[in-house]
C-alpha cells in the first residue's frame, strides 16, 4: 500500500449552493465516495480549502494576495488515501464528485518516500 495525494481543481460550488437541495445532493455524493474509502480503511484525510489565501514567492519572500491563478487552475481541496498501485489510485479518483463539474480536475500524485 502506498499513499497518494489527490489535488482538486475547478468545480466551483457556489452556483450549486444557491439551491439547498442540489447542494445537499452533491455533498451526499462526497459522503458516499469518501465513506467507501473510509470503510476500506483507505481514507487518510481530506479537506476543502478557502478560495482566498496568500502566496509567498522566492528568496525575497514577496507576499501576494490571492487569487494567484485562474479559478479553474486553483487547488480547491485535497484528499490523501492509500492504494495498492498508481492505477488503483487513478481508478479511485475517477469516482470523485468534483468531476461532476465541467471544469473539475483531479491530479493524482504519489507521496515521495524519502531515502537518505
Amino acid at each position: 500500500m502506498k499513499e497518494y495525494l489527490f489535488l482538486f481543481r475547478g468545480g466551483d460550488g457556489s452556483t450549486l449552493q444557491k439551491s439547498s437541495e442540489a447542494w445537499q445532493a452533491h455533498m451526499q455524493k462526497w459522503m458516499s465516495w469518501m465513506g467507501g474509502l473510509a470503510e476500506q480503511g483507505s481514507l487518510v484525510s481530506a479537506q476543502p480549502l478557502n478560495t482566498d489565501g496568500k502566496q509567498i514567492m522566492g528568496t525575497k519572500k514577496l507576499v501576494t494576495d490571492g487569487p494567484f491563478m485562474e479559478g479553474k487552475e486553483m487547488v480547491g481541496g485535497y484528499l490523501m488515501c492509500k492504494a495498492s498501485s498508481y492505477d488503483d489510485a487513478v481508478e479511485i479518483a475517477k469516482g470523485c464528485p468534483i468531476l461532476d463539474f465541467e471544469d473539475g480536475k483531479v491530479e493524482v500524485r504519489q507521496i515521495q518516500e524519502m531515502t537518505m
Binding site: Q47, L49, I56, G58
Partner: peptide, 9 residues
C-alpha cells in the same frame, strides 16, 4: 519556489 497558504474551508 513559492508557498501558497490556504485555510481549510
Amino acid at each position: 519556489g513559492n508557498v501558497e497558504v490556504r485555510a481549510v474551508m
